[in-house]
């Protein structure tokens, strides 16, 4: 089975966010594999253990993303592609990323593409469905369970807490939701092996794309931090009185009940 995982290097949102000159300052912030993409990588490894095949991880980004690709290789992926747009593009959006990926997949045979359902930095969750549409394959988002039998695929997906059981067939693109599996940590031998696994870099040229083909369809005009919240009011006195005061505040001050 030809298994592909589309992944993203993201800023760890547990880090403090600092904005300087209108952009988020990277500083020494920690970068990670987007947590939802980790579920996708783990699911790919489980698929390979069951059905054999090869796992290829792909990302769109800059040179820095090599580190996260190596982590995926250390977890158990077989090879990696960095679609490096650093030199060609200043700004891209979800349209850009999906189009670059689509051109990559038009040159590679796949049975299944796995991705995270959303990245924790940008949080738009567009690239998976956009890519599936460009490749004219079906997709299922926010999956929590998947069984593949020959060409037949049975999936459970999370729909705002309810579960949809879906039947479909390969080839398909799926996006992972929390609960799909428990991603493994790279083992020490895995990390050693990952250093020798193939990691290839491709630029727009190699994908038969020009800068104009992937120009963003949206732009960010401003980034800002939310207004700092005033410290709240911790109530005092007997519990009974605190509760009375609280209900009163909610009624008259905040007007929410």
């Amino acid at each position: 089975m030809n298994i592909y995982v589309v992944m993203k290097r993201t800023f760890d949102t547990e880090e403090k966010i600092v904005i300087k000159n209108g952009v988020i300052e990277e500083g020494d912030a920690k970068y990670i594999i987007n947590p939802y993409d980790e579920y996708a990588i783990e699911e790919a490894i489980l698929l390979k253990e069951k059905h054999d095949g090869e796992i290829t991880v792909v990302t769109v980004g800059g040179e820095d993303a090599e580190k996260e690709l190596r982590t995926a290789l250390a977890m158990g992926a077989d090879k990696a592609f960095l679609l490096n747009t650093e030199d060609d593009l200043e700004d891209g959006d979800e349209y850009t990323t999906a189009k670059v990926l689509a051109h990559f997949f038009k040159k590679n045979e796949f049975d299944i593409i796995l991705a995270g359902n959303v990245a924790i930095d940008g949080g738009s969750g567009q690239v998976g469905p956009r890519l599936a549409e460009l490749l004219d394959i079906s997709y299922v988002t926010t999956i929590t369970k998947m069984e593949i039998d020959g060409q037949k695929v049975t999936i459970e997906r999370d729909v705002e807490g309810d579960v949809e059981v879906i039947e479909t067939s390969l080839p398909i693109l799926v996006t992972a939701q929390q609960g799909l599996n428990e991603p493994r940590y790279p083992s020490l031998p895995g990390i050693m092996k990952a250093k020798k696994k193939p990691l290839e870099e491709l630029e727009l040229d190699d994908l038969d794309l020009d800068k104009e083909d992937v120009e963003a369809k949206s732009k960010v005009v401003e980034i800002y931090l939310p207004p700092k919240k005033e410290a709240g009011k911790v109530l005092e006195g007997e519990v009974q009185d605190q509760v009375k005061e609280l209900v009163n505040l909610l009624k008259t001050d905040a007007k929410v009940i």
Binding site: I24, G122, S218, K219, V221, E222, Y224
Partner: peptide, 12 residues
């Protein structure tokens, strides 16, 4: 963005 730790204004 960034799980609600920042906001962006965006246009098509």
């Amino acid at each position: 963005i960034y799980s609600g730790k920042a906001f962006e204004k965006k246009m098509i």
